[in-house]
């Protein structure tokens, strides 16, 4: 069984690192501690029975208002895929609010470059050894982390803060003729 093989392989090697492993709606999920993430990812990438050569997605979830208790406030979620065996695997790494640091997986999958930058600017999670960790989507002077649950949807005033340009003359009378 492929499902069992993936779990067994990881458990065999890194039994201390695994917090939880389960299957939900066919998605295989492994929850990890944050310290040795890079080592486990390298194993998953290079192991000849798994060979997860494709990082589909990397993002984070803020569990501040979640109904079920979670180990920590933030979780970084990796979607892995193996082109050779067609395995799918979701990895969740919990990160406490006090220490928002995690190893970058850029050295394994180049895909992680912009995805980690996006996660950094949206959640404020720092990725160690990332070559170019700066804002990706928002202006550089933007303060705050918009995807966190305590950030208001309508923002904190950036969208109202621009110079106002007006016409050199008032041509409103033209419009009155129109009507």
């Amino acid at each position: 069984m492929a499902d069992q093989l993936i779990f067994d392989k990881i458990k065999e090697k890194f039994s201390d690192e695994i917090l939880d492993s389960y299957e939900f709606r066919g998605d295989k999920v492994v929850c990890l501690k944050k310290d040795n993430v890079l080592e486990i990812m390298e194993f998953l990438n290079t192991d000849s029975d798994l060979h997860f050569d494709f990082l589909a997605d990397l993002t984070a979830i803020d569990y501040l208002e979640y109904s079920e208790p979670q180990p920590e406030r933030f979780a970084v979620v990796y979607q892995l895929y193996s082109h050779e065996f067609k395995y799918e695997l979701t990895i969740k790494v919990y990160i406490p609010e006090e220490d928002l640091h995690l190893d970058s997986v850029y050295s394994i999958w180049k895909t992680a470059d912009w995805l980690e930058r996006e996660t950094y600017e949206m959640f404020g999670i720092h990725f160690r050894h990332h070559p170019n960790l700066k804002k990706l989507l928002l202006p550089e002077d933007f303060k705050g982390f918009p995807e966190r649950k305590d950030f208001p949807v309508k923002g904190i005033g950036y969208r109202e803060n621009f110079p106002i340009y007006s016409r050199p003359f008032d041509n409103n009378y033209l419009r009155k003729e129109e009507d």
Binding site: A56, D57, T59, I61, D62, E65, Y66, S67, V77, Q79, K110, T111, D113, W114, L115, E118
Partner: peptide, 27 residues
């Protein structure tokens, strides 16, 4: 094109993440 949906049991998703092909391809 992938969607990750995290549900809290409520009427709207707790977190909805889109895995956009363009973002990754553009790198």
């Amino acid at each position: 094109l992938g969607y990750m949906i995290s549900s809290n049991g409520g009427n709207s998703p707790y977190r909805c993440r889109v895995r956009p092909p363009s973002l990754v391809n553009y790198q």
